[in-house]
Design a protein around this nucleic acid. Sequence first.
RNA 1: GCCCAGGUGGCGAAAUUGGCAGACGCACCAGACUUAGGAUCUGGCACCGUGAGGUAUGGAGGUUCAAGUCCUCUCCUGGGCACCA
Length: 830
Amino acid sequence: MNYDHREVEGKILAGQKKGHDFFCDVNNSQKKFYSLGMFPYPSGNAHMGHVLVYTLSDIKARFKKLKGHEVLHPMGWDAFGLPAENAAIKHKVRPDSWTVSNIAKMKNEQLSGEGWSFDWDKELNTSSPEYYRWTQWLFLEMLKANMAYKKAGYVNWCPVDQTVLANEQVINGCCYRDGAAVEKRLMDQWFFKITAYAPKLWDDLDKLTHWATEAVAVQRNWINKNIGSNIDFKVKELDETIRVFTTRADTLFGVCAVVIAPEHPLVQKILAKHPSPEIKSYVETALKKSQVERMQSKEKTGIKTAVKCQHPFPEFATAKEVNVWIGDYVIGDYGTGAVMCVPGHDTRDFEFAQKFNLPVYEVILPKNHTSQGSLKEPFTELGTLVNSGPYSNLSSQQAIEKITHDLVARGHGEATTTFQLRDWSVGRQRFWGCPIPIIYCDKCGTVPVPEKDLPVVLPIARDSDMEDGILNLRQFKDFINTKCPTCHGPAKRETDTLDTFLCSSWYAFRFIDNKNAQKPFDSARVNKWMPVDFYVGGIEHAAQHMIYFRFITKFLKDRGYVNFDEPVDYFFCNGMVGKDGAKMSKSKGNIVVPTEIIENYGGDALRFYILSDTPAELDRDWDDKGIKAKQEFIKKNFNNLSAYLSTVTNIKPNRGDLSKFKYQELLFDLFGGLAQLEEQLEKNLFNNAVAKVHELSNSLLRIVNTAKDLADSDHATLKSLIEDYLVSIGVLLPFTAEALLKEYFGETRCLYKSTWPIIEKQYLVRDTINIAVQINGKKRALIEIKKNASETEALTVAMNDADVQRNIEGKTVIKKIYVPGKIVNIVIKD
RNA sequence: GCCCAGGUGGCGAAAUUGGCAGACGCACCAGACUUAGGAUCUGGCACCGUGAGGUAUGGAGGUUCAAGUCCUCUCCUGGGCACCA
């Protein structure tokens, strides 16, 4: 047989389609393993990123299956979202047809030749009514728990996509998709109260010990817990209070102004009392400014109001009363949307004060320093208080505690914790998404669609619906006009659809019970199969998807549907696959297409190459020479093993008495190598596993190619060792391994259902070992000693070594160290 | 500014608890077989040095019999967050 990857792989694939090879029995959860790669968006184009992700989930799945686990390795489609809608508008294809044909293309043509062990029985599609019915159910659960609400608020508006964006979709003030500058707009929006879970999401980060550290860091950054104080400044004139948030209550006596955000509710009240065209115009301009503009203008802007507020400790304060300013450097929805301006000890406040000539008070001194009189720049670190009445001379830490305590006593403040995490805006003004199950009735108000009426089915978009280049649920009168579930009078449906991140926030649960028509999933079953044991995906999903996934899990737990806190035990962040030092992209023309690679080199070569050399968590650069070498490695194995195996077809593989086997060295190499391969697969050191397969192959082929005139018993042993080798490397090279097993070993089963070889541990050690002899820490000789050599024996061998003798000649030996089995170190001096 | 990950041959990288630095592969060099080689096989390959030997894991110190690995300081690269009070 001469290796031809098309023939070998084609045969195996053809066999798989007939069988049910990768079926997971979810009722068998005694020893379960859930391996999951983040499911793809069905764009119709599989790329190398997909190849890496699913090869990783597949290696893990195959390995665990051989080790005796019941393995769930499912695949599905994150099928709602903008591209389908854009394609619809551009090419006048129905989004549902576009999606369905892309799924078929990806499933049958693009994601099939890599030898992945997906259980297609568990397939799901988030855009199918069978699935999104339960996404709607989840929305209703949120509503029931008072966790979903609609409010008018400033939202991120993308002028290009004509839609609202979540905070997570705004990158540096621009839309994550098209880079357009995001505007602020006041709109009615549905939100999920994820902030209610901020403390849990924060605290439980400590439980994520098996997550990629950078992913945890991203989450920490995003939730960003700040411990501080809320402090009230009374506005007597308006009988109002401005509450500011600060982490530095110790700087309270350095306040020169209170600055509120343009969005702050008090702005309108101030304007009502003191109408001012200047203020009105400043606020309007600030609100209209996009986030980019607000961030990019380095210069501080602001405007003084006619209103003053009172220091909570007027008796000790230098400024007993300070002006209220409006400044757009204050963020409306962080903290209380108001800050105390302490120019002496905060960089931004300092810039603000410089710009508007506000007084700078020095109230914190660096440790062991005296007053500088006037501050040239803000001192923002902790220190010792000064000019702070009775709090002077306290350390910052002491003062934060004492001042906050005293504020509470006066009713002027409280200790508090603030999170940067904002509520999740889940509504999208988009057609191709999960309809929000809400009906608006003039009589009854906002009425949730009763559960029995789910799903609220998305209407079918016909060509005529897309004529104006717009596709929106508002166009579908039959959809909008409905009856109120409560009073049965005429009513209208919600026309916003749900953020696709909601669809993907619970899909891992549904895989476990994807055909359930009564419930989103069976709780007992999900409790057995979750959390996901191995979750693979890019770091780019560490913020949004992973936060929502965690949030929904915690929410479902509180609602009694699941009994675990965290959905993912092990989160593996794969690196990116680039070419020529750059990200693959159409414009650069450096895209490597997986299907073409499979056609030219084979699926096994692709799998083997994509895991080789670079650790899977790091970015890698595609190299055509690399995959060529892998193809040749596979070919060499296939041809050489075939050549030997075809000469011993009449001999049954049988380990027999290994101690009598002719090639004792092979036993050491093979069992040792397999033990290491096992450990590397366990620890996700995939590039090392590839190297180990190379080593195993080198050892085995050396023997196989020279095996002549052997006794039948030696042939039987060798053949059995080859079988073990094939089963284990089949985790990485399933086609090649399975083809040889079926051809020469009478194997009829799928390789997936085989078992990991038994490793004979007694062959992992040799009778004698080579250890290095160091002199003053430098290697000078290599000696051979018995495995169990005593210290005296080892040192004697070392001291008698010619190289050692030469090096210590004429010197005084001070100390001799023997670390059993490791090293000898002789310390000498002149 | 804050957070995270890294820095080891020409390249991608290996290296249990500190214990022979460079596994495995790419590229390269030499040879064999070939009409041919972008096929295959054999050997070589950190650096300096003819050699003995010396020098090497970003840099500087330290701990230790022994440091890529531990400690202190420092430089550089990549990534994330960011007027978040």
